[in-house]
């Protein structure tokens, strides 16, 4: 009987991480910003039908970069988790923290146990109630590492450059149009191109909305906010 040849766990993890990182770095990026009336999510995404950003629950949104089928799977699992929890307890009991931990567990398990790790990073954002509590933004990596972010977050191919740019340019309590312009500038920071409303997928968790805070911004409204309307 041939012996399976030995690979040290260290080497195996390293290889997997490199593999996952490579997959993610090929993808386009997503920027998340805390703004005056909530949380803004901006993705570079030329498709209007295959979303990278989506609604999970009343105050919670999801964003994913990397391999579409993998983060889409995670998105649906998240909606299922949230809807079951909200149905069996109450709508207020569904939190981003529990969801982010579930994602972290799932991705961590896949990373250590499966041959192929997920080539994704996901972000879970929860907009605060109006009365002074804080927004929550969780960023979960391919190996289950979980971080909570403040003010801004970036993931995808050029995440490091974007983060550096936002560190210098982010300001508190920006109104939607200025925040959007900043987000788009951040997405193009490493590239010599301009993004039009057709290349963008944008959504906000809008604190001023009733119950379901998630709102997509359609292309027509985008061009208005970007000031590129002809």
């Amino acid at each position: 009987m041939p012996l399976p040849y030995y690979v040290s766990p260290e080497q195996m993890m390293k290889d997997k991480a490199e593999y996952a990182r490579k997959g993610i770095s090929r993808g386009r990026s997503i920027v998340t910003l805390e703004i005056r009336d909530g949380i803004l999510l901006v993705a570079e995404n030329p498709s209007t039908l295959l979303h990278k950003i989506s609604e999970i629950y009343d105050r919670i949104a999801f964003a994913g970069v990397g391999k579409y089928n993998e983060f889409e799977n995670l998105r649906i699992a998240g909606i299922r988790h949230a809807d079951i929890k909200g149905y069996s307890y109450s709508r207020g009991d569904v939190t981003a923290k529990a969801l982010a931990n579930a994602y972290s567990q799932a991705l961590g398990n896949i990373f250590t146990q499966d041959i192929k790790p997920f080539e994704v990073e996901v972000l879970v954002a929860e907009v605060a109630e109006a009365n002074g509590s804080r927004n929550e933004i969780y960023h979960i990596l391919y190996d289950g590492t979980i971080e909570d972010e403040h003010n801004y977050a970036a993931m995808g191919g050029q995440a490091d450059e974007i983060r550096r740019f936002l560190k210098d340019h982010y300001r508190d309590a920006l109104p939607l149009d200025e925040a959007l312009q900043l987000g788009v500038r951040a997405l193009t920071v490493t590239q010599n191109k301009t993004l039009s409303e057709r290349d963008l997928e944008v959504a906000v968790l809008d604190r001023t909305k009733e119950r379901r805070k998630f709102r997509r911004i359609p292309p027509e409204a985008l061009s208005q906010l970007l000031g590129t309307q002809r």
Partner: peptide, 16 residues
């Protein structure tokens, strides 16, 4: 009614 509401919202979120 509650199950029905959740059903419709769930569908809407999953299917977009």
């Amino acid at each position: 009614a509650k199950l029905f509401q959740t059903e419709l919202e769930h569908y809407e979120k999953v299917e977009g």
